[in-house]
Deep mutational scan, measured.
Amino acid sequence: MLDDRARMEAAKKEKVEQILAEFQLQEEDLKKVMRRMQKEMDRGLRLETHEEASVKMLPTYVRSTPEGSEVGDFLSLDLGGTNFRVMLVKVGEGEEGQWSVKTKHQMYSIPEDAMTGTAEMLFDYISECISDFLDKHQMKHKKLPLGFTFSFPVRHEDIDKGILLNWTKGFKASGAEGNNVVGLLRDAIKRRGDFEMDVVAMVNDTVATMISCYYEDHQCEVGMIVGTGCNACYMEEMQNVELVEGDEGRMCVNTEWGAFGDSGELDEFLLEYDRLVDESSANPGQQLYEKLIGGKYMGELVRLVLLRLVDENLLFHGEASEQLRTRGAFETRFVSQVESDTGDRKQIYNILSTLGLRPSTTDCDIVRRACESVSTRAAHMCSAGLAGVINRMRESRSEDVMRITVGVDGSVYKLHPSFKERFHASVRRLTPSCEITFIESEEGSGRGAALVSAVACKKACMLGQ
């Protein structure tokens, strides 16, 4: 009897593995994704193909990295998701002549009506938060230079001027797309009239992360975010950046690689679950690469896999709870928690219980395998993109072996128990001629924006502006 049951459990697990095998990517698959990513990057950089390229390769006008001589107080704003952060950054000489960066910050959550109302409502709310922060720190009387981390696709015309191309991540505030974001912020500050600010720089969160990590390690020339969304930036040779005049030196390019796949480059790798996630998203047909990796989508992918296993009578005796059938019910943090389970399955059992399920031991094991399959594919897909960037940098610099540091931020990278190990191992397999160091950014977005502002202020002083 026991043997029969054991055989049935083994057969069930084997069927589960057959279904989950769809998520496995072979090294040849990853090399294919990497080569296609490089081709799209090239198209994004070139003037004649930029418009139709899915990977936009947006110039950021960040050319210099901090040298350690900029000092002063800077205000930093960070808008990239449902939370908005205001930070005071003091850049100065530390002990023994070292450079020191001290920060104080406060988080504000953005109400739904500000995210989806008008641009005026959104930026009025942001300036209200700045006003509140300055009151708390008794700094209303000071006109501070301000660095703005704005983590949406922007076409820069200068370091302090950028046109919002399109909202992502659930934002829909009308009247912002096609307009200068810094102008919208300046107008809102003017409307309030109770404080003055000098907006000197606007950067993407990947750029802010790279600059913040450069402060720790001067070989950091790539910034990457794996959180709600997924994106990367890197220092490109100016001669390859056709959208900006000049051939000397390097400029940081914001790849906006989340949109890779929007022209069909990933079609052969998309599964039924991916198509369902895409169809029910706020932007169907867009940001397809990001939807395979980002935390906004990972939990939902797992939920759809679990429903398939229920329908195949391989999980929960073929019956799903009402909660499990509800879109968004299986949160991405559950994926991390399930994979963090120590082996007694308590954590998995508790999560499934909150979803109205009474799982068996085998159910718990199957749910864990589903989570591992989805998150491992995410790590491997992400590795193909980064390997594409790094191999490109090595080739354009004609280096036999390139040493490089990548600064990384984002909740999936930082909080998932195995993502970074799987990701690092896969990147290294795909970049055999590179020695890569990964560092995690601390308060990256805010500190990085302030350091970019410090560079901009120093330049302005040198130019006598």
Rank of each mutant, 00 (worst) to 15 (best):
M202Y: 01
T342Q: 09
L309H: 00
R429E: 09
C220G: 14
L415R: 08
S212N: 03
M107W: 06
F23V: 10
T431M: 15
G170E: 02
A449L: 02
N350P: 09
S398M: 11
V91Q: 06
K169C: 01
E14Y: 14
Q287L: 03
R192P: 06
S360C: 12
S69I: 07
R5K: 13
V222N: 00
S336M: 00
S174G: 01
G44F: 00
V181N: 04
M57H: 02
N180D: 11
E265P: 02
E312A: 13
V222Q: 03
S453W: 01
V71T: 11
W167A: 05
V55M: 05
F74W: 05
L352Y: 04
T60Q: 02
S151N: 04
I211S: 15
A460P: 15
I293Y: 01
Q38G: 08
Y108I: 03
E443C: 14
R369S: 15
L324Y: 05
Y61H: 07
F171T: 00
V207E: 00
M57W: 01
T326A: 11
S441D: 10
E245A: 15
I189Y: 03
A201W: 03
V154T: 10
R275T: 15
R155L: 00
N231I: 00
S411L: 03
V55H: 00
A21G: 06
L301E: 04
A449Y: 00
T118L: 03
K143V: 09
I439S: 09
V452Y: 15
K140W: 04
A11S: 13
A282K: 15
I159V: 02
A450L: 02
R36E: 11
R191H: 11
G193F: 06
A114N: 12
A329S: 15
E157V: 06
F133K: 04
T228H: 03
S151K: 05
C233S: 11
H141D: 07
L314R: 13
G295A: 03
L309S: 07
Q239E: 13
P59D: 04
I436R: 04
M107F: 08
K420I: 05
T405A: 15
I404D: 00
H50T: 06
H141Y: 07
L146N: 03
S131W: 05
E300L: 06
A379E: 04
L88R: 09
A320P: 15
D409E: 14
E442D: 15
L47G: 10
A6V: 11
N313S: 12
L25M: 04
A10S: 09
G97S: 13
M235W: 14
F84M: 14
A450N: 00
Q337G: 11
V181A: 00
A456I: 15
V389G: 04
D262R: 10
R422S: 14
E265S: 11
K140Y: 01
G227V: 07
H416Y: 07
R392I: 13
V452F: 11
E290C: 01
E216G: 09
R333M: 04
N350E: 09
R368N: 09
A378N: 04
M462Y: 09
E443K: 07
S76T: 03
D217M: 15
D29A: 11
E245D: 11
Q106R: 07
V154C: 05
R422Q: 13
D409I: 02
Y273D: 06
D78N: 05
R303W: 04
S127G: 14
K346R: 13
V335A: 13
R5D: 03
C461K: 13
W99M: 15
F330H: 04
A329M: 09
Y273A: 11
D3W: 14
L2R: 07
S396T: 11
E421L: 10
A10Y: 13
D158K: 04
P145M: 15
S360K: 08
R192I: 03
M41C: 09
M210H: 06
K459S: 15
L271R: 12
G94E: 12
Y349D: 05
F423V: 14
K136H: 12
E290V: 02
V455S: 13
Y214L: 15
A53L: 03
C371S: 08
T437Q: 13
M235I: 07
I404C: 08
N231P: 05
H424C: 09
I225P: 01
R275K: 11
A53F: 05
S441L: 04
T82Y: 00
E272W: 14
C364R: 08
R7W: 07
Q219N: 04
G343A: 10
Y273F: 15
D194P: 06
A387S: 05
Q219M: 15
K90E: 15
F419P: 06
L2N: 15
I404S: 07
E322S: 13
F195P: 00
G227M: 00
V455K: 14
D217N: 11
E96V: 12
E339G: 05
R377C: 06
G94H: 12
P284T: 11
V33D: 03
V401G: 11
L415K: 05
L270C: 05
Q286Y: 14
A119L: 02
Q18P: 07
D29V: 12
A53Y: 06
Y234G: 01
E242W: 06
E300R: 04
Y273L: 07
T354L: 12
E216R: 09
M462L: 11
N231R: 04
G261V: 00
V55Y: 03
M462P: 14
L45T: 02
G385E: 02
A188C: 00
Q38L: 11
G246K: 00
E22C: 14
E157S: 04
E312C: 11
D217R: 07
E372V: 13
N313Q: 11
C129R: 04
D409A: 06
D217Q: 15
R327V: 11
M41G: 03
G258F: 14
G68R: 15
L144V: 05
Q347V: 13
V33K: 02
C371D: 01
S174R: 09
V427E: 01
K414M: 15
M121I: 05
I163D: 01
Q24F: 11
C461S: 14
S433L: 12
Y61W: 04
K420G: 10
V101M: 10
E265Y: 03
M298A: 05
Y273P: 15
G299F: 03
G193A: 05
R422K: 15
L451N: 00
F330R: 09
G299Q: 06
E17G: 08
P66W: 13
G444C: 06
A454E: 02
H380A: 11
E96H: 07
K172E: 05
P66V: 10
M139E: 02
K291Y: 02
T168C: 02
Q38T: 10
G388C: 04
D278R: 06
L314G: 09
P66T: 12
M402A: 11
F334N: 10
K56G: 10
S100T: 08
K459P: 15
V455Q: 15
A173I: 00
R85N: 01
V62Y: 12
H416I: 06
E17P: 14
Q219S: 12
E177D: 00
M8T: 06
G97L: 12
R325F: 14
I366S: 09
K56P: 09
